[in-house]
């Protein structure tokens, strides 16, 4: 009985080791992109960090349910989106409408060139429904099909939103260039 218990507990231990390895691999492979995605969802670095931590904690707890390593990315995104939604349920009353607040990211201000900063600002200014599919495409290289699955949207809707997102960005940039041109001229 004791021998069986011992081999049982060593199996548990080696399972734990394997789980650790898996988790660390998951963190290494995805934490950066997941953080960036979270950032573009909430447009706040510290909130994004919180959500990412919560996401990975949940990922750890239900790591056993992740059977397909290829699905890991979208699995994490799903957890993160749920965490973000939960945050809104929790903080329904003390959130500021983030779209009204101009987005400023200090590190980007410090390092990025003017164009980068401009794009950053414009991306932040896109409405959520346009920004989210665009960010999925840009960060994770998701196809239209993958985005539509992830966001539970019709593919045509996704393609339209992607088109509008880029279109709005182009137009905004052109408008600014014109303004700058006028100011200079």
């Amino acid at each position: 009985m004791f021998a069986r218990n011992r081999s049982g507990s060593s199996r548990v231990l080696s399972n734990m080791k394997a789980k650790h390895k898996r988790y660390e691999a998951l963190v290494n492979a995805f934490h950066a992109d997941i953080f960036r995605y979270a950032y573009w969802l909430v447009k706040d670095r510290s909130v994004a960090e919180d959500i990412v931590q919560e996401t990975f904690l949940r990922a750890w707890r239900s790591l056993d349910s992740l059977n397909d390593e290829k699905a890991a990315k979208s699995w994490l995104i799903t957890i993160l989106r749920r965490e973000n939604a939960r945050r809104f349920e929790r903080k329904q009353f003390d959130t500021v409408d983030i779209d009204d607040v101009s987005v400023h990211d200090e590190t980007q201000d410090a390092e990025g060139d003017v164009q980068d900063r401009e794009l950053h600002r414009l991306l932040g200014g896109l409405s959520d429904e346009y920004r989210e599919p665009l960010v999925l495409q840009l960060i994770f290289g998701f196809s239209g099909d993958e985005i539509s699955q992830q966001l539970n949207l019709n593919k045509n809707t996704v393609m339209t939103r992607l088109f509008r997102a880029r279109n709005q960005l182009r137009e905004a940039l052109e408008r600014q260039n014109e303004q700058r041109g006028q100011a200079n001229g």
Partner: peptide, 13 residues
């Protein structure tokens, strides 16, 4: 755009 969405990730994350 891809460059712009690549915000810095906290080093210790």
């Amino acid at each position: 755009l891809k460059q712009a969405v690549k915000v810095d990730v906290p080093e210790d994350l």
